[in-house]
Nucleic acid binder design. Structure first.
Lengths: 363, 363
DNA sequence: CTGTTAGCGCGTTCAT
DNA sequence: ATGAACGCGCTAACAG
């Protein structure tokens, strides 16, 4: 019945209670209190109960930082999102975020279940030398694990700097493989693109074009490679002008598709490296009076929300991104327990989402 | 020219160098080293140089956790994203993420500039008693500031628990005001909705309906209030059936607009509480052969990407979300410097994005 | 200018 | 079953 709510123990004490305070009240030592509160069987039931009560009465909370110093575990994992060297407006691209968000969820939840906090560090264009930032974090022991979410190819020097430097902290790259020695988790965009082309081929298409993404993007390159692989394997030619490069934005899809259709032999199917460019293409085609999918089949990538909003609804590729986060989390968690586990490289498979923008070629 | 790269100092020493190690090499005390490395003017230029060199040679990094324990600052701020009591699929809602992402950027960048790390904690439906999680974080001194991103109204008990409990850590709620005593940053959704209605009135509309969001959402309620306020102020009636409630999803907009148009006196303009429902409404109207904006004007909310993709492009409301993050960050940073600053409540104003889905009523 | 010393709060021996 | 003592690595207050 103390009138002092904030601090049940009747002392003029603005500072937070520590193990010593509660030890004093119960009349035992700090060691006993520590053991009791962590549920050790070494302490007598009776004592443990009294300790817990005192702790509650004093509104005691362990000091996380002190615990971390003592145990040597920071209880924190860090996610570095490298936003590439693009315009800083890149962060606002919905396509980037539908990407980040699901991975974030996977990481956050999985790590949370294991008692880790997730630190988010967005590194934008403005920050030169991001590797040093990461190294610093790791070496200051502010983190027990590092996730590196990369979108764009970067200078090799920086990559190596990171791969070679032994951080003594588990690290996994997400969305790409930096080096054989550094664990990674990614989705096989190459296979996805390949599947898409095969799908179109099974619909009787032979004149298949590709609107790729920027060549410094990992995903764009993989998708391009998958496209080329399937075309080659099927013995289909890729005429001049069939493989063009956009910048992810709708506008570029809008313009590039016009070049495509102006070709001597225009394609009957177009694989776009993301949904936005596909939607741009869709609009341009509509403007040109070319019907989708009757005259041209169209495929997007990412299964963004817009792909199910446009008319016709866009056939696209969905990536299991939440699982990417979960797998990545589990990889560093594994490293954390039995030290230096060898690098693992996980590749998850995407799935084709069939909607209305593709049609079997009649005749 | 040591052959031991990992540890320039020639000792069989796998552990990381500490202040003591480098102090020993230079022949000064740890205190001097500490001061020198933090660039204190109290130390002789000569000594400082030698210290820096030794530090570099030994590849020394300060131990962040030790520093934090010593200084009492955790160097961390925490963002709690409360995902409401909805289906856990809520996290995947793009509309939520276009919301989160911009705020995240504002927070992350601003805090980073001040030497703080951002911890992200997603609290979903599955976690009962989220307030205790937050309290725990705060009381364990694992964080120097708390951001609370709330979407849905929650039980009052939990709110009060948080508002009353003095955390001794600055806290600001984002997107709503929990209590007068707790700082907050938000966008005036009420004014936004009000502006929208006035805009439609200025176009000659008088029969204006509203498809609201779920009533347990802060934003939905504010928008509904703004709608009612402007209607009332203009002396316009809100007939039975003109105010309906959806669930944010396209599907609900699709269905509700059909009820609206089946009314004895159907509206000539409809304010939807988000873009998704507006797009759903758009599709339904198209299906019913009702042209937008010629026969019915339509307004969305959020300026989601889809709003500029559909035909006609949707007039909507944009919120300055990145600025919300920046302001929130600055508020806790201010608190952090000169302690207990009084609660501040900032309200930012949204802006109407005029596109093609509204038309002046002719006649 | 520099060294000494005392915490910071907790976990963890090793005695008893 | 419990207590005393030490270590984690750094900063801060004071002494010289």
């Amino acid at each position: 019945m103390s009138s002092n709510l904030a601090n049940g123990h009747d002392e003029t004490l603005s500072r937070r209670p520590t193990l010593a305070d509660i030890a004093r009240e119960v009349g035992v030592s700090t060691a006993t209190v520590s053991l009791a509160l962590s549920g050790s069987p070494l302490v007598a039931k009776q004592t443990a109960r009294r300790v817990r009560e005192a702790a509650r009465r004093q509104n005691y909370r362990p000091h996380a930082i002190a615990r971390r110093l003592s145990t040597g575990r920071s209880e924190v994992m860090s996610l570095f999102v490298l936003d590439g060297k693009q315009h800083s407006s890149r962060w606002l691209l919905s396509s980037s975020w539908m990407f980040y968000s699901q991975i974030l969820k996977g990481l956050s939840v999985t790590l949370g279940q294991h008692g880790y906090n997730l630190q988010l560090c967005m590194v934008g264009d403005e920050v030169r030398g991001w590797p040093s930032i990461i190294v610093e974090h790791a070496m200051e022991r502010g983190t027990d694990g590092i996730f590196l979410l990369l979108q764009d190819r970067d200078e090799y020097s920086t990559l190596d700097e990171l791969a070679n430097l032994s951080l003594e902290v588990p690290m996994v790259t997400i969305n790409c493989t930096l080096a054989r020695t550094v664990s990674s988790v990614q989705v096989s965009n190459e296979q996805a693109a390949s599947d898409v082309v095969n799908y179109l081929i099974s619909f009787g298409h032979r004149k298949i074009a590709h609107i790729a993404g920027p060549s410094d993007s990992f995903n764009a390159e993989d998708r391009r490679a998958g496209y080329l692989a399937s075309m080659g394997k099927a013995g289909l030619a890729v005429p001049d002008g069939y493989l063009v490069e956009g910048d992810w934005q709708m506008q570029s899809g809008y313009q590039l598709v016009q070049n495509l259709m102006a070709l001597p032999v225009p394609p009957t199917a177009i694989v776009c490296s993301n949904d936005h460019m596909a939607v741009g293409a869709l609009e341009a085609l509509r403007g040109m009076g070319i019907r989708v999918p009757d005259e041209v089949s169209l495929v997007g990538f990412d299964d963004t929300e817009i792909s199910s909003v446009v008319t016709p609804r866009l056939t696209t590729v969905r990536q299991p991104l939440e699982e990417v986060g979960i797998v990545a989390a589990n990889q560093v968690l594994a490293w954390d327990r039995d030290v230096p586990s060898p690098a693992q490289h996980t590749v998850l498979v995407p799935s084709l989402v069939e909607r209305e923008s593709c049609k079997r070629l009649s005749g």
